[in-house]
Design a protein around this nucleic acid. Structure first.
Lengths: 228, 228
DNA sequence: TCGCATCCTCACGATTTCCTCACGCCCCCC
DNA sequence: GGGGGGCGTGAGGAAATCGTGAGGATGCGA
């Protein structure tokens, strides 16, 4: 479980990071708003713990920007106790708001509550099969003809994004945003590379894709078996 | 949006119910734990606002019981401010915890935050059918007699523009702007080309268009089936 | 420090798409 | 019947996009 910790107080960051790591969380940190936004894009946290009072971008701006492309839970920490501040942050897209000073146990409980909701119970056994490949979106396990297939993190993100929108066209921009966050700037030519890799690993005939199709000029599309 | 309001203080219930109803919520109420549990089962609320200090079943027991069969968001209201109480409720399955006294605006903002997350904007399922063709404007999927039809980006943009304005005339200028932006300069003669392609791919008799009609000298018009 | 996996750039041939050109058709008006 | 404007459609080259191999850059653990 990855936590992005964004706070401009180094002491606070250190204390929280130690506590969270002791609980088994994978913690990355940001010390200002712009940094937080960048890391939210490339670190793919499962939850963001965000201090509103950071230099640079305001907390509200960070929330709005992240909400533009992600639904990751955001827990706001703030010294401001006015209800107006809470309303503003929550309506901007934050999921919870806790005021300083706070008890660490409460913060941890709220983090658990938020992450519990977004990590669906194993009930959602979302397994996608196509050809002789089998992809478990829950456990992130990929097999082909029963044998495990190794995917790199980037390959996985692209495959996951496509598989979660079956039959639907996924634009290049959507894929790039899903993998590199809203701040991709370079030429998206390397998307082709990863699709090529995925086909090589999963398509029966990589040269003639049946499932991971290209829509020239637009993007890609995953077409399940039953759709001919 | 249905709210189940569970609190043993009639005055509080009345005040909250009035406020929530004024905001357009459909409010049902319960005055003790057993009642809350029963209504949670049969009223299918979109969110439960639960006071911990009710007679009968404890709030924790209500939460645990509800979580046995439902993932409906639960917002806890409590007079207890100890972090231990919060941790207990949150870990039992509550999604948020707010202490009395609270500002009503904050409560409303938290209700919005919780319901927002569980009602993801339904993927605009706007499907247009005509003849044996079917166009899904959301997923950009076009099929004919069940088989997928490949459209080029330009073809798609023109088709989409026409389909989003059924029955109304779409001028050449509108189409050109939709596809090439406001800075088209060359002769718009190639519009004919793309309409020709679209008819070939989608019209039963491309030579005698029934759905993608030409308005000589002006533009084009999409006429759905039921309009003769 | 080394080896390894991953990410990304670059380059080139293959494929797809875009757009021009040309020609024939239909309709309307003279 | 003739002429003209607008339209539909086939052919084909230019341009953009795509697939893929080779290899450098980077980060990380041994």
């Amino acid at each position: 479980m990855k936590v992005l910790l964004a706070d401009d107080d180094p002491q606070m960051v250190r204390a929280l990071a130690i506590t969270l790591r002791a609980r088994g969380y994978d913690v990355s940190t940001a010390l200002d708003g712009a940094d937080a936004l960048a890391r939210a894009g490339d670190a793919h946290p499962d939850i963001i713990v965000l201090d509103l009072g950071m230099p640079g971008l305001t907390g509200i701006e960070v929330i709005t920007a992240v909400r533009g492309w992600s639904t990751v839970p955001i827990l706001v920490i703030s010294g401001r106790t006015e209800s107006w501040d809470k309303v503003e942050a929550l309506d901007a897209g934050a999921d919870d708001y806790i005021t300083k000073p706070f008890v660490i146990d409460e913060l941890l409980a709220r983090v658990r509550a938020l992450t519990r909701r977004t990590t669906p119970a194993p009930a959602e056994a979302s397994v996608v099969r196509f050809g002789d490949a089998e992809v478990d979106l829950g456990s992130r396990l990929v097999t082909r003809a029963g044998k495990p297939v190794r995917l790199t993190p980037t390959e996985w993100r692209i495959l996951e994004t496509l598989l979660r929108h079956p039959r639907s066209l996924v634009t290049r921009e959507t894929l790039l945003t899903a993998v590199w966050g809203p701040t991709f700037q370079t030429d998206p030519s390397y998307l082709r590379l990863y699709l090529s890799q995925l086909r090589k690993k999963l398509e029966p005939l990589p040269a003639e894709p049946r499932y991971l199709l290209t829509e020239a000029g637009m993007g890609y599309r995953f077409v399940p078996d039953e759709d001919g």
